[in-house]
């Protein structure tokens, strides 16, 4: 299957990184979204994800074009504005073995699609929900989105007077069991979080600050590369250990906290901020709010609780995909119909 040179490194499936790429990006040169795409490719490669099991969903906007740019072996669905979560929901019901990646933007998820975001999180739809957050509508040439910070301004000079909606605190409030914020310019942290996300069962909300180089990269923007670099406060160094590797890895003691996933994988969290415990829901909320007041971008794994059942478990579905169940298991018998008819006479 590998299409790269024989010398290229391979993962546990014997695949090379080239097996996880997509078509060429048509986004602006230097776009933060492309850096995220690169990390999705890396994480899928390193985690040894089967490409054919991947389903990629998106709504409308610059971010929503990106599922075409990674994992060509997976199926993609670029749907309608703000409705990506419903797409992932339907597909996970049809085939619960799919690995679902949803890519959305701040406009797609925090304005037109807020309702869908809220309800997908509430249902714990098994998916990695990525918000490529630049605080601006890029594809329609630079209008404010609902995550734009109060006081930030557009290229035109227009100032945003409204408070932002924060996807991370919203997700924690709704009971999401995996909430992280990253910066597209910090590949190491983003890569570790994405690998953890692939091992998680349930909704993963990743708010990735991704500067728009064309419409929102000027000095007065709070989502510019410079501004985010200056205000990014990572909470911790993260290491992700795949279940297959857990026994071989010598995990450092001391300040490192381990969170174990149902499949045995572990995230090692080495605190930079000593007071931060990502398993403490209300502590996480308080710390995020405090940092927002200070104008910081707190990045890292903000909250984690791997014990919540995903939607597909709650529905108590058969193990095999509903999509491919045979007629013999779906169509009730002649006797059943006769019985129902008799009850209606």
């Amino acid at each position: 299957m590998s299409t790269a040179a024989p010398s290229a490194p391979t993962n546990r499936l014997g695949l090379t990184k080239q097996d996880y790429v997509g078509s060429k990006s048509t986004l602006c040169a230097g776009c933060g979204h492309d850096a995220i795409t690169t990390q999705i490719i890396n994480a899928a490669f390193e985690s040894g994800i089967e490409g054919y099991q991947v389903a990629k969903f998106s709504g409308i906007g610059c971010s929503s074009k990106t599922p075409a740019y990674f994992i060509n072996q997976g199926w993609g669905f670029n749907s309608v504005h703000g409705r990506m979560p419903a797409m992932a929901t339907g597909a996970c019901l049809a085939n619960k073995q799919l690995i679902n990646i949803g890519v959305s933007g701040d406009g797609d998820s925090m304005s037109i699609g807020t309702g869908q975001f809220v309800h997908a999180v509430r249902r714990n739809v098994p998916m990695i929900y990525i918000i490529e957050d630049n605080g601006v509508y890029g594809l329609t040439k630079g209008q404010f989105s609902a995550t734009a910070d109060k006081g930030s301004s557009l290229k035109s000079g227009a100032v945003n007077e409204l408070p932002p909606i924060d996807p991370c605190t919203l997700a924690i409030e709704l009971g999401c069991g995996f909430v992280a914020r990253c910066f597209s310019g910090n590949p190491k942290q983003l890569g570790a979080i994405l690998k953890s996300a692939f091992a998680y069962r349930g909704t993963v909300v990743l708010d990735i600050i991704s500067p728009c180089v064309t419409f929102n990269n000027h000095d007065a923007s709070t989502r510019s590369y410079k501004h985010v670099k200056d205000h990014d406060f990572p909470l911790h160094d993260l290491g992700f250990i795949q279940y297959s590797e857990v026994e071989d890895v010598d995990i450092a003691a001391g300040q490192t906290e381990l969170v174990t996933f149902p499949d045995g994988s572990k995230v090692a969290i080495k605190a930079i901020r000593e007071d931060y415990d990502p398993t403490d829901r209300w502590g996480a909320m308080r710390t995020i709010h405090e940092s927002m007041e200070k104008g910081e971008f707190l990045t890292g794994l903000l909250y984690i609780n791997p014990s919540q059942p995903p939607l597909t478990d709650l529905l108590d579905l058969v193990d095999e995909p509903l999509a491919t169940l045979p007629e013999s298991l779906l169509k009730p018998s002649r006797e059943v119909l006769a019985e129902i008819m008799a009850s209606l006479t």
Partner: peptide, 28 residues
Amino acid sequence: KATVAIVQMEDELASAGVVLSAGWAGAR
């Protein structure tokens, strides 16, 4: 175990999305 998944969605928009993506993924 169930051979059908039934979800009351948040609105008709989401319902339509579920129907079409489930159909796309092979469900009836």
